[in-house]
Design a binder for these strands. Structure first.
Length: 735
RNA sequence: GGCGGCGUAGCUCAGCCCGGUUAGAGCAACGGCUUCAUAAGCCGUGUGUCAUCGGUUCAAAUCCGAUCGCCGCUACCA
């Protein structure tokens, strides 16, 4: 019997996670693992945070905390969030920096690849800081932009003019850490030879032509994505100039060089496995070898272990090509071949209320806060699961949340339990006895049985939405049966008929209580306890259900105890308030993040009458408060603003947002490019008065020179041109 | 502009890969029944251009091409 090794994409310890992450890689994995364990399969569920990389060092430095401290902070937040959703990884939920095996195992991967001839070395010229004794990654290099002369350009691009810069072309470079001037030196970086690995067997494996390393049929999204990727496969750099990460193994060790974060991250699955096994052993008072993880990752027979990666679609390439290549490239150096994925159930993207989740735009929900307001995690889990982006992008809406909670959970399932048990309590002395089935019960089971199998088959195929609807369908069928029996009227003439109805209704509730376990762990347990099968062995129960739609433990009657309210309903007002609050957050955030220097203008621009400063509407205030540092009138005077008339306007070919304008400034005509094509058609601009920044350095875009800039306001919904409210002659100054 | 995806009942979607019964589900709506239950439940009600046009075929929502519309990534937005 195969064992199951389940991983969820390692969340990057660089920020919070939102619903999209939760449904993308963690919740479905949790459901699947619970299911596998119900089926009695030996299953390991591994996850932790991805803690290296330049994004982390940069953000940590910007925050003014140490790398590890920074990573620890997010590790805690992410771990708490996932735990709040009831996602139960095997402990510990570790991380690529905190795991004490990670460095060793990552270095082993590197060495083995090297020994097997799958690494290339390329020499390139790069800036080197002698004081810090390291080569400087792009973002650790500052200097003068060779294009616009701005002084704080980075090694990869100039923030001022936006040009991409070849780091070697940077003028007057200096190290961002110590400020000294670096020198150009030759350095060698290592590359993973993906084309060779592909030719040597990874390609064959991917196509499903390696009988010893089988995988399920790839999902369509996986197949199409990888097809494109294979079309041009290049060696990939696996080392980086950084002080935060896994150092290269001896004898390749080099000061200031580490493994590229993408290389060591997936190895985290392996190293965390070792920690999990250690933790298990420790609990049993045993100790294990340092290579115990190989029992899972390089078993004697590769088909013994089914490796399943739950990921979002942005991770498909890594998990179907890159990491499998790294594993394949180990050869037998770990004793046996390293397992390659058996299934990669990649989710598509999950949006929020019609738009992308965006923390910076305020278009997001803090999961922890959400669960504080709606503490029944099961409802959140079931909503995410039944709207999950399995086959296409999908979205979370508060309306769906309400519908799933109220209709599917409270009305259908919760109320079913309630009506059956209350009846038993009030009318049958609180005792449920078993009664033999009649035609009606056989008909009920003819409906329920296929759903039990649908549930199992759907979960086997990672079709969690279908599994959810099978569960709901059983509730519906049972409600129907209950109605047809009408025990409330039967009891008047035929007490046994009423008893039979409650008996079989609660048996179906028992089935629901078992099948709901992966999705609704809390409600499932409550249901089981309520219908007298609280102590049931779930594994045996599922086997029995699949074999004969019955559970032995449910064949004895029970006495009704407390009747729980499984799901509290959510009213329309609450939902409307949630949506409104979300919109407000987004609007507030849009105001504080406008990018032009025109951010205080929009309210005034729409005022028809001449606005006085005193009459300035309040919305302008918070923008100013949250914005840039104070400047003096002299600073402002450096900007030459003039009114001009648009005389020519036309689209710039092959650019979506760009418009080429010719503006009459009275004394001269200038060509100005402006990124407003999404909101303005060229025709509607001709003749319009605009405000031009005249003394802005020229800039070439799409082969055309732009001399100046048109002022436009933007509240997040696109640019709005700023124009004088009364007729002013071209050339008039603006101040 | 490039790459990718999508367009099926009022809404959310399934079906499309591997063409073939009267194109389905849930929700909403409307009508009725019921009162055991969390104002829950049950029954009934859909003349849907399967975006449009064209092609392949005995047969197309399903395959091919073009068009329109929407979305994402990307370039561009001083």
């Amino acid at each position: 019997m195969p064992r199951y090794l389940v991983t969820s994409a390692l969340p990057y310890a660089n920020g919070p996670i939102h619903f999209g992450h939760v449904i993308g890689a963690y919740l479905p994995a949790d459901v699947y693992v619970r299911y596998r364990r119900m089926r009695g399969d030996d299953t390991l569920f591994v996850c932790g945070t991805d803690e290296h990389g330049v994004a982390i060092t940069i953000n940590a430095e910007a925050t003014g905390v140490g790398y590890r401290e920074f990573v620890d902070r997010w590790h805690r937040v992410i771990g708490d969030t996932l735990a709040a959703f009831g996602i139960q990884f095997d402990t510990p939920f570790s991380g690529t920096n905190r795991c004490r095996h990670h460095e060793r195992i990552s270095q082993r991967f590197f060495k083995n690849l090297h020994e097997n001839g799958y690494l290339l070395q390329k020499t390139e010229r790069q800036w080197y800081c002698e004081k810090d004794a390291m080569f400087l990654a792009d973002r650790y290099l500052e200097g003068t932009c060779p294009f616009c002369g701005a002084e704080n350009a980075r090694g990869d691009e100039c923030k001022k003019c936006g040009q991409w810069i070849d780091a070697l072309a940077l003028k007057n470079p200096h190290c961002k850490l110590c400020g000294t001037t670096p020198v150009v030196r030759e350095t060698a970086h290592w590359y993973l030879d993906l084309p060779k690995l592909h030719a040597d067997g990874v390609g064959e494996w991917f196509e499903g032509k390696n009988p010893r390393r089988e995988h399920v049929e790839w999902k369509p999204n996986v197949r199409s994505f990888v097809g494109n990727m294979l079309a041009d496969l290049h060696p990939r750099p696996i080392t980086r100039d950084l002080r935060w990460g896994v150092p290269l193994p001896t004898p390749f060790t080099e000061e200031g060089k580490v493994l590229y974060v993408w290389f060591d991250a997936p190895i985290g699955y392996c190293s965390i496995t070792q920690e999990v096994l250690e933790e298990r052993a420790r609990r049993k008072g045993e100790t294990i070898e340092d290579n115990a993880w190989l029992d899972w990752w390089a078993p004697k027979n590769p088909s013994d272990v089914r490796l399943i990666h739950f990921i979002g679609k942005d991770n498909i390439g890594f998990h179907t090509i890159v990491f499998p290549s790294m594993s394949f490239g180990q050869g037998d150096r770990f004793g046996h071949p390293v397992v390659m994925p058996w299934a990669v159930p990649a989710m598509e993207f999950y949006n929020l209320q019609g738009r992308k989740f965006s923390t910076s735009d305020g278009w997001t929900i803090d999961p922890i806060e959400f669960l504080k307001r709606y503490p029944n995690v099961d409802a959140a889990r079931f909503t995410l699961l039944s709207t999950s982006p399995e086959t296409a992008d999908s979205e979370f809406t508060f309306e769906d949340f309400q519908r799933v909670n109220n209709r599917d959970l409270a009305d259908n399932l919760g109320n079913l339990l309630s009506r059956a048990l209350r009846f038993a309590k009030d009318k049958l002395d609180g005792v449920v006895d078993r009664r033999d089935p009649t035609e009606a019960e056989r008909a009920l089971y003819a409906e329920v049985t296929p759903q039990i199998h649908a549930w199992a088959q759907a979960l086997e195929k990672f079709e969690i939405r279908n599994a959810c609807s099978a569960l709901v369908a059983i509730g519906r069928a049972t409600n129907r049966y209950f109605d047809a029996c009408a025990p409330w009227s039967a009891i008047k003439s035929d007490r046994v008929a009423a008893e039979r109805c409650i008996d079989w209704t609660t048996r179906c509730l028992g089935i629901i209580g078992i099948l709901a376990e992966p999705f609704l762990p809390n409600a499932a347990r409550a249901i089981r306890e309520s219908v007298g099968i609280g102590g049931i062995d779930l594994r045996q129960a599922v086997d029995e259900l699949l074999a004969r739609s019955q559970v032995t433990a449910a064949e004895i009657g029970f006495r009704v105890g407390e009747v729980p309210i499984l799901f509290q309903k959510i009213d329309d007002k609450t939902i409307a308030a949630e949506v409104a609050a979300l919109r407000e957050r987004a609007a507030a955030s849009a105001k504080t993040t406008t990018k032009n220097m025109t951010e205080n203008v929009p309210a005034a621009a729409s005022q028809p009458a001449a606005p006085t400063p005193a009459a300035a509407p309040t919305p302008a205030a918070p923008a100013a408060a949250a914005g840039k540092p104070e400047i003096t009138i002299d600073d402002f005077a450096k900007v030459e603003l003039r009114v001009g008339t648009v005389v020519v306007a036309e689209r710039v070919p092959k650019a979506d947002k760009l418009l080429r304008l010719e503006v009459d400034l009275g004394t001269e005509k200038r060509q100005v490019l402006s990124g407003i094509a999404l909101k303005y058609a060229p025709e509607q601009l001709v003749g319009k008065r605009v405000v031009v920044v005249c003394n802005l350095a020229p800039r070439t875009m799409r082969g055309l020179e732009s001399r100046g800039m048109i002022l436009a306001a933007d509240d997040g919904s696109g640019p709005v041109i700023v124009s004088p409210t009364a007729d002013v002659s071209p050339g008039a100054t603006v101040k």
